[in-house]
Design a protein around this nucleic acid. Structure first.
Lengths: 246, 246
DNA sequence: CGCAGCCTTGAACAGGCTCAATGGGTGTGG
DNA sequence: CCACACCCATTGAGCCTGTTCAAGGCTGCG
């Protein structure tokens, strides 16, 4: 019997590791001293420029990760849900490069990096966990990069919705009914487009029946089928592919 | 005393590092069994889809990292020089997501991941090294993302040249005379633009005197000043910033 | 020499941006 | 309770940056 499907992996894209979400939390809880922190929308477990000392495992809720440059540019570079870690960017420089900001009431488990390393000596599974999470962060950032460069605006929005629904699914929530916890401007920042383009793309998706805005407002929407969304993306891609291949 | 600053990661963007590169290689050499591999342009230490078993530390030369999707899109998502690692993307899924391809005669030190972990138990500095490198990879990917989304095409090309020169500098090479080891199409893939746009941007930079093509062909170029390039980027940014602030 | 890649440049086109007007929702205070 | 202000979202019109398509040049090589 395959346990992996009983306790699905922590938001892995492909085939991850025997240790699923449940195991991750259980293992940490019993092996490492950690501090549970309840956060509200807008709170930031780490801020850009702050000295690095702890990593934060998202236990519930969701976060946006914002990168800020010296010259004032800023962008949402990642979204993190249950099972994702916050703060990896601080390890190398000893100082955080990005802010992580709660987009909803959320709980994180904060773990001092040095104590995590010490615990890792006795329990290699902890290290495997950590490395897996970092590796996944890299893989996902590169996927973002690829989507940004190879997909037209509408497809990026469709992928974004699919990704969000997927993430909810891996937390055990329903994937057909989603509540966007970001403004159009934030979505646009994440997807490399303006808020107007996001709005237009959503309208188009609604017009084509892939999504439906619920009566509770423009941030609550119903997704007909994530497969259909994927198909929509592929259809936008075809003209180019055909042109290239023929 | 903070160990992190005693053995800082290689090629850190910000404050790098009296010790840096040399220590990394020395430490690995004396602590971990590794296999030196000489590669030629086009060789790939890891291929997409291949099972993951080893990490590869770049000892000389340079690599492009190419991400390939199931539906056939592909993109250059990173460039790696001496001191960078290849293969992090394989840890989580147990299988590589990206290809790393040598763009020049290069040497990598290949290290089995499992033996590296074991060595890490006795020598925490090895783990610090590894984590620093992964953290840096994340930080850099996010910087790419930000450049892609917030800079116009010409600025992206300027930043690209600056980054390349910087990377050479951190290998101890001269930074004013660089040889691009990529075609215009590859640069375009990395920067999210077409090869024509890259070519035009380079022509513009040459016309404004920031770069000069040498007599040895259009891939060899002389950079007047990396600071001037940074200034060029800022100048392209100002109109927007001014518009936003006023 | 002729071919194959790669690079450059021009001209037309288009996707997404900017600017602007409008409307819905929410919270506050009269 | 309504009026107002504020923020967010939608939609349209015109524009601009970067793409597409096309032609031509350079270099290296069989």
């Amino acid at each position: 019997m395959d346990l992996r499907h009983a306790t699905p992996p922590a938001r892995s894209t492909g085939a991850c590791t025997e240790t699923g979400l449940f195991d991750v939390f259980a293992l940490l809880e019993q092996r490492v001293p950690l501090q549970r922190r309840l956060l509200h929308a807008g709170d930031a477990p780490c801020r850009a420029g702050e000295p690095f000392s702890s990593l934060h495992l998202v236990h519930s809720g969701c976060f946006k990760v914002v990168n800020i440059t010296a010259d004032g540019r800023e962008q949402v570079v990642a979204l993190q849900f249950k099972g994702d870690w916050l703060g990896f960017d601080g390890i190398a420089a000893g100082r955080h490069a990005c802010e992580a900001i709660a987009m909803d009431t959320s709980e994180v488990w904060s773990i001092r990096y040095d104590t995590l390393l010490q615990a890792g000596v006795d329990c290699p599974a902890l290290l495997a966990l950590l490395h897996g999470a970092m590796s996944q962060a890299i893989t996902r950032d590169r996927e973002s990069l690829l989507s940004l460069c190879t997909l037209p605006a509408d497809a990026r929005v469709a992928e974004f919705l699919r990704h969000w629904a997927d993430s909810l699914g891996q937390c055990g929530l329903r994937t057909d009914q989603i509540t966007l916890r970001m403004t159009r401007a934030e979505i646009g920042s994440y997807l490399g487009m303006t808020l107007e383009s996001v709005s237009r793309a959503l309208s188009r998706l609604a017009r084509e029946g892939h999504i439906r805005f619920t009566e509770r407002g423009r941030r609550h929407l119903h997704i007909a089928s994530t497969e259909a969304l994927a198909g929509f993306v592929q259809r936008l891609l075809e003209p180019r592919a055909a042109g290239v291949l023929l």
